[in-house]
Design a protein around this nucleic acid. Structure first.
Length: 476
RNA sequence: UCCUCCUUAGCUCAGUCGGUUAGAGCACAUGACUGUUAAUCAUGGGGUCCUUGGUUCGAGCCCAAGAGGGGGAGCCA
């Protein structure tokens, strides 16, 4: 008896864990398997207990069957929703419907209990609002498991796409002294004593005493550094965290989000649009090819039009038109708008939605906006009134990409900076790109979470990032 | 920041005209059931009705302020 036990323990310890995803794809032939994961549900009767185990490798659970003539009820008492378990058993063809294989358990070891009275997640559905309050546990739900796996796949696909096209991944700084990008309010980075900071003679905070010897902030964009490196490596991209201290309370904004910013030398606006469209279609196609289980779940649970919409985007060309044409369409539209449509003013959300969702019924690339509503670095058209900007507008999301051909002329760029009050003195290094070997170039920014909103069909951007940061919220 | 709606059991929600002891489903506990599929059935426990103040004989319900959340807008990606 003693010898038998010893033998068994060695066998158990030597056994390697198999991920649920792999187990589910394995042909059953009574082979021994060891599975570890978290219990989703337990059900059954006096004679048989079914335990659904999930380890996050796939949205699907493995069904563990415990024969209650072998197991005692006491030994499975701690196997409750949320508990972590290690299951050793035989992989067999399922006797029941609903799954092809299941594990006939020999041992079920509880690694960590989860008191069912206090464990917040239940078998039944929870509201996304409630799950936001328990962001540390929501990855254990089907929905967030699916979203996080898709998020990973999209991040991977971004790198694969650019790598295959010969783009180089550039790490632009997170901390920046440049305050001139005009992309909104910034988070200050400082080591000065907030209670008693050093002061100048005029009574202002003396940032020359600060860590970097000047006032610094978290980046709102890697574009300017991206341009600098594109002026050497031709085609680069950045993919990193971005910080905006705007008091934005919407389902499309975060204070901390991830942005992808390609920057390409020798690209004009047309090339820029071609890249943006090809890139977005590649990403959506990648999701369809690699995340179908998760997308199918999201399609069934949240948005029955998700898969048709994703397929539509992959299969159809984006509508390209310039700002002036868009204004004409909106002016003659039968729909009444809350905000007036006028050449020279920026399009409101309702206008963008009309163009994308009602008029063209497909993604739209809008170009050549009036210069006064766009950034200083965008290339001025020959008409002197518009710039070579492009915004890619998606259904339900609005602006998913914002980009432009850049102004490569030193003189024109300086003029625009003066007109728009951008301090050229601080930007000497950026201007040097136009002084030494300037070339036509273009780029754009893609909000990673906005892409995920589209690909997953989620309605709120706070549900496509594991730990969202937004005004009054930095828990977890 | 603005507009608007919401806040009642662990979760999702109902609660009539301001009136006695605030309900349901799920979850949880106990029991039943020989293969379940968000298992089912029976029984049971479970409440700071967001907070503070006010009106009233009496407030979950009416009023005011505050807090938190949703949706929309602006800013943008």
């Amino acid at each position: 008896m003693h010898g038998l036990n010893t033998c068994y323990v060695i066998l158990y310890n030597d056994m390697k864990r198999t991920k649920v995803k792999e187990v589910l794809q394995t042909a059953p032939s009574d082979q021994e398997v060891l599975v570890k994961g978290w219990v989703r549900t337990k059900r059954g009767n006096k004679y048989v207990t079914f335990i659904a185990v999930n380890d996050g490798s796939t949205i699907h659970n493995i069904q563990v069957v415990a024969d209650m003539t072998v197991f005692s009820e006491e030994s499975l008492k701690e196997v409750t929703t949320g508990a972590s378990v290690s299951v050793l058993g035989t992989l067999v063809q399922s006797q029941g419907k609903g799954q092809t294989v299941e594990i006939q358990a020999r041992t079920v070891e509880v690694l960590g209990t989860a008191d069912p009275e206090t464990y917040p997640l239940q078998k039944k559905g929870h509201s996304l609002e409630f799950l936001r309050e328990i962001a540390h546990l929501r990855p254990r739900t089907n929905t967030f498991g699916a979203v996080l796996r898709v998020r990973h796949a999209m991040a991977f696909a971004v790198h694969q796409y650019f790598n295959s096209k010969g783009f180089f991944y550039i790490h632009t700084p997170i901390i920046t002294a440049s305050d001139a990008e005009g992309a909104g309010e910034m988070f200050r980075v400082t080591t000065l004593d907030p209670v008693n900071p050093p002061k100048t003679e005029t009574g202002e905070v003396d940032f020359s005493e600060d860590f970097f010897g000047k006032s610094t902030n978290l980046t709102v964009s890697g574009q300017l550094e991206g341009e600098v490196t594109a002026m050497a490596l031709s085609e680069i991209y950045t993919f990193g965290p971005t910080f905006r201290a705007e008091n934005s309370n919407t389902s499309r904004h975060l204070a901390e989000f991830w942005m992808i910013e390609p920057e390409m030398a020798f690209y004009e606006l047309e090339d820029n649009m071609d890249l943006a469209e090809d890139f977005l279609k590649y990403l959506v196609r990648y999701a369809l090819d690699n995340c179908m289980d998760d997308l199918q779940f999201l399609n069934d649970m949240y948005d029955k039009e998700l898969l048709p919409r994703l397929n539509f985007v992959v299969e159809n060309d984006f509508q390209r038109l310039n700002y002036t044409e868009a204004i004409e369409i909106l002016k003659t539209a039968k729909q009444k708008f809350e905000y007036k449509v006028d050449w020279g003013t920026d399009l409101q959300s309702e206008h963008e939605r009309y163009l994308v969702e009602k008029h063209f019924k497909k993604p739209v690339i809008l170009t050549n906006y009036p210069k006064d509503i766009k950034s200083f670095y965008m290339k001025l058209n020959d008409d002197g009134k518009t710039v070579r900007a492009m915004d890619v507008l998606f259904p339900g999301i609005g602006e998913i990409i914002g980009g432009s051909q850049r102004e490569e002329s030193y003189e024109k760029l300086v003029t625009r900076m003066q007109e728009m009050g951008v301090p050229e003195k601080e930007m000497w290094w950026f201007l040097d790109t136009r002084r030494f070997g300037t070339v036509p170039h273009s780029g754009f920014g893609l909000g990673f979470e906005r892409l995920l909103l589209f690909v997953t069909g989620m309605g709120n951007i706070r549900d496509v990032i594991p730990f969202p940061r937004f005004p009054k919220s930095a828990e977890f």
